[in-house]
Design a protein around this nucleic acid. Structure first.
Length: 294
DNA sequence: CCACGGCCTGATTC
DNA sequence: AGAATCAGGCCGT
């Protein structure tokens, strides 16, 4: 089936660093080929190129008629990043992080793909998460092409559900397969409408996610922040935990819930952005100090 | 409520 | 070289 290519230009008058944002560990399936990024938005293959005043987008109008809107939604271009930065920069440590990583944005991803990615993230690392996602797509996803470019979309809930735990283990998910299979089942059966959670209050949406196997507080907060419009969700992973304990809490150990409440109180409604910057900054300083640290 | 060990696997370190 | 250790946690006890 031949595809007609179309292009559009999305104006960006906000901070946006494409590689920083797309490789920040929120999304795992963007490929960079000489400054041309290929990936999926709303399940449709497209390419992105950054230029001086925005993004040059190539897409298939037959499957994605409103590419301009889709791209704006995906990069959350309606978020007033300068205002968010201004608030974060009241904190000395965050101010330094923001200046070092200007243009890092939170994405609005597809919640299904995001959910599976972060279930797979436990006890893993970014390259391996990316590898698992890519393997799932290349094995169980539908082939899609855009001009001469061909990639496979992330598998549907039905596709992952029918693959089953054993097959998912063979594909390298390890013990995560026993979480992914029933989660896919739950979503495929229509028992859980992930998109509907965007309109739900934070606690309700979080409870619905945590009810799924393999989803705890941290994974739930990742999906809430990166896909479900909850900008005050603050996933606290081991890096952010260490950052908070060492830099703000004088070494004090707190529960996940207490740390979450602390970030909410300290960084306000943009705790999610604060978290993302603390994550970056902490990893950076840990590496600089020769890894081990603490 | 908190603490702890086990869990797939692959890369890196000792 | 081969054994530990670690990696953006979750679950059960």
């Amino acid at each position: 089936m031949p595809t007609a290519l179309a292009t559009t230009h999305v104006a960006v008058d906000q901070p946006l660093d494409l590689p920083l944002t797309l490789e920040s560990g929120q999304a795992f399936r963007w490929h960079n080929d000489g400054g041309v990024w290929s990936g999926f938005i709303e399940g449709r293959l497209l390419t992105l190129e950054r230029d001086a005043d925005g993004l040059h987008v190539t897409f298939d109008p037959a499957t994605l008629p409103d590419a301009d809107r889709a791209v704006r939604d995906y990069f959350r271009l309606d978020d007033d990043l300068p205002a968010i930065y201004a608030q974060l920069c009241e904190d000395e440590r965050l101010s330094a992080a923001v200046q070092r990583h200007w243009g890092l944005r939170i994405l609005r991803q597809d919640p299904w793909e995001c959910l599976i990615a972060f279930i797979c993230s436990q006890n893993s690392n970014i390259p391996r998460i990316a590898k698992m996602q890519e393997t799932l797509a290349n094995t169980l996803g539908e082939e899609t092409s855009l001009g001469t470019l061909t990639r496979r979309a992330f598998p549907t809930p039905t596709a992952l559900a029918s693959a089953g735990e054993t097959r998912l283990r063979e594909l390298g998910l390890g013990y995560r397969a026993k979480y992914v299979a029933p989660t896919a089942e739950a979503v495929a059966s229509g028992g859980l409408n992930l998109f509907a959670l965007r309109a739900a209050p934070y606690e309700d949406a979080k409870a619905a996610l945590i009810a799924l196997p393999g989803v705890g507080e941290k994974v739930a907060d990742c999906v809430l922040l990166f896909a479900l419009d909850q900008l005050d969700a603050a996933p606290i992973d081991r890096w952010v935990r260490r950052a908070l304990e060492d830099w703000y809490l004088d070494g004090q150990r707190l529960s996940y819930r207490d740390l979450w409440a602390w970030t909410r109180d300290s960084f306000g409604p943009y705790a999610g952005y604060a978290q993302q910057y603390l994550f970056f900054r902490r990893r950076e300083t840990a590496r600089a100090k020769g890894e081990g640290d603490s």
